[in-house]
Design a binder for these strands. Sequence first.
DNA 1: CCTAGCATGTAACCAGTTACATGATTCA
DNA 2: TGAATCATGTAACTGGTTACATGCTAGG
Lengths: 189, 189
Amino acid sequence: MSLRHTLLGFLSYGPMTGYDLKKFMDNSTQHFWHAQLSQIYPTLKRMESDGLVESMVLPQEGKPNKKVYSITVAGRDVLMNWLRSATTELPPAKEPNLLRLFFSGALDDDTLLAQLRQQLALHRAQLQRYEDETAAYIEQQIIETGRERDGMMWELAREFGVGYERHYLAWLERAVEMIARSQDGQKGA
Amino acid sequence: MSLRHTLLGFLSYGPMTGYDLKKFMDNSTQHFWHAQLSQIYPTLKRMESDGLVESMVLPQEGKPNKKVYSITVAGRDVLMNWLRSATTELPPAKEPNLLRLFFSGALDDDTLLAQLRQQLALHRAQLQRYEDETAAYIEQQIIETGRERDGMMWELAREFGVGYERHYLAWLERAVEMIARSQDGQKGA
DNA sequence: CCTAGCATGTAACCAGTTACATGATTCA
DNA sequence: TGAATCATGTAACTGGTTACATGCTAGG
């Protein structure tokens, strides 16, 4: 259900097209909610027939016409109800990399270490991105839109990402160390 | 694709039924991969016709017959290839609670604080579970099965969970503090 | 010349959820 | 008496991915 909520959330900032919505998602909610254009377009269509959004076609030359969506009163209602709704359970997660590790007892130490080091590199890069690009993007968005309170939420989400990557890195580093040490022990014996 | 890998992973420890597989998942991979029986049964069937597993029917009285699945050589092959496969990208995640917060600028401070405190309670409970039940369960499994190297992986996954919950709690606590403080400032003024 | 960006969508497929169906046994 | 555990599944639906289709403009 949450793609609908994501679209309502962005449209609550102002009217825009499906294409615009995709770009906003790629730049901001990407790491906690994402979608392809091929899912966004039909979802907007269904949301319109459900009365949550309405569209206006802007004719263009040399490009397909723009279809600009706005949130309706009913849409704002659905959005606010979602924002207020209680969290009674932790959402189930799918983490293929953890799953892989869980069953990696069958791998030799070298392959296992290579796996973990690959992940280390990816997470280091992601931490960097949160600290540089994402921070700059949020600051710029706050200046451009003047949405300071929303900006506080965006910043909180970014800080979650930073904390998450730091935890992930610390854990990976400990795991690598542990396995490397147990390997030395075997070679030395 | 990863439900198939999960099932192969558990079957690599020994033959079991779909029902057993579900219980193992609920007790161990639950927080990084989960599935319903209604998805497990047909998946096993397709894996059998793909030659990754094979089944043997054990007749029972008063209950449906047991269908015990074992991993085949081809299945073990697929499992090992997956374990060895490189991680080239961070897997995309869906975090409805973060998404909700991202758009929560429209909520008043009290509702926002209530939201965050609900989450705090859930994550505190989850941390406790990882530290008590999960730790005990893993220890017991290692003793029962003698799989010490696999046990190291299970334990690493558990420690990831502990670290994740600690990070989540620290972040929630900071967020609550920040919002509560900004609220005091407004009241005091 | 080719790639990226702008801008819309459809169709086929795969993964996952919810509801339904059956039926015995054990425990509170 | 009713819920939980054992044990299998099917059917209908929803959510999400991948591939296909079109076509112009700007920049390296």
